[in-house]
Nucleic acid binder design. Structure first.
Length: 319
DNA sequence: TAGGCCATCTGGTCCT
DNA sequence: AGGACCAGATGGCCTA
């Protein structure tokens, strides 16, 4: 089966075509591209019952067919591939040139749509990096929706916290503590050198704050007891796997088994941030609010229980 | 090999 | 009339 190629795409692909098959044909749907075959038909016929050769796809503008074994290949998906016993599709009522223009516009439209989806993926948390699988279209939309919901809830929560603290008349300390709770980097007390990009102390990406590491961590079992739920089973994931989006159903392209996950955003690390009772009054308040009110603990994702799309990462959630 | 995901083609419909 | 949008059909690629 010949591989479909996109307009303007230029690449070499290796295909298997049975000997004796006439690979020449009219360029139908992909009139914008031309496929060149490096072997002549006679050479292909002499190479056995099944041969492997490379074809190159170039644009019409810079490719000229010649008699040295270069043949046009019909790239349409519905007939004339490895076996030409299928009949060509019926002629469309739309003239061919119009049809091609419509198809091209539709392709462009879909490319724009995919570009917008890509830009959406870019702003979703923890969906980037070489080890993170590309989110599917559906996952991207669901995750974006849940991310918005989560941010909205977080905003409300922070407003409530600010309200609590304003009653205690400690506005300056509160704001600083609030920024710490929300993960915003504090202003450095020492000016950074020009040209040196400071690393975030609180980034979930493997950069750990030494101060955070020194803090006592609330074990997951404590959370389970407090909330009456089992975090592990509620999430449907192994907490040992700290890459929430390493969902193999979203893999595009070969996986690198030796490629260690760069993102380390385990539940423990989240609890370390959320549940620490010491050193930070705000965090303590947030912690107690969460647990005493049965309030939510923010987690970066959950897996859908949809029967159609099981185990799809869909964004941030609260438990 | 089945299922998920995707790109593309295609015809229909709506809008300008 | 032509373009945008939509949904169904089809087939390829990839993973489990």
């Amino acid at each position: 089966m010949l591989q479909k190629v996109n307009q303007g795409e230029k690449r070499g692909v290796t295909q298997r075509i049975k000997a004796g098959v006439d690979v020449r044909g009219s360029i139908k749907s992909y009139s914008c591209v031309k496929v060149t075959v490096s072997q002549t038909l006679t050479e292909i016929s002499n190479m056995g019952s099944e041969v492997e050769f490379e074809i190159n796809v170039d644009t019409l503008e810079d490719t000229e067919a010649n008699d040295s074994g270069i043949s046009d290949v019909d790239l349409s998906t519905d007939y004339c591939n490895t076996s030409c016993d299928q009949t060509p599709p019926s002629k469309s009522r739309v003239p061919e040139d119009i049809r091609l223009r419509i198809n091209s516009r539709e392709r462009d439209r879909m490319h724009n749509l995919n570009g917008a989806l890509d830009s959406l993926r870019q702003v979703l948390p923890h969906s980037r990096g070489p080890s993170v699988k590309k989110l599917s279209k559906l996952s991207t939309l669901l995750m974006a929706r849940n991310y918005i919901v989560t941010l909205t809830k977080s905003l409300e929560e922070l407003k409530n916290i600010v309200g609590d603290l304003s009653c205690k008349s400690q506005p300056i300390q509160s704001l600083e503590a609030l920024s710490r709770l929300s993960g915003e980097p504090r202003e450095s007390r020492t000016p950074s050198r020009p040209g040196v990009i400071p690393k975030s102390r609180y980034s979930p990406y493997s950069v750990k704050s030494p101060r955070r590491q020194e803090r006592p961590t609330l074990p997951v079992s404590c959370l389970n007891t407090s909330l009456g739920v089992n975090v592990n089973t509620s999430l449907g994931v192994n907490l040992g796997n700290s890459v929430p989006f390493a969902d193999k159903t979203n893999v595009r392209g070969p996986q690198k088994t030796d490629d260690k996950p760069k993102i380390n955003f385990s539940v423990e690390s989240l609890l370390k941030k959320t549940c620490s009772k010491e050193d930070n009054k705000l965090e303590s308040i947030a912690y107690h609010r969460h647990l005493s009110n049965g309030g939510p603990i923010p987690l970066p994702f959950f897996y859908s229980h949809s029967a159609t799309y099981p185990n799809q990462p869909v964004g941030m959630t609260y438990i």
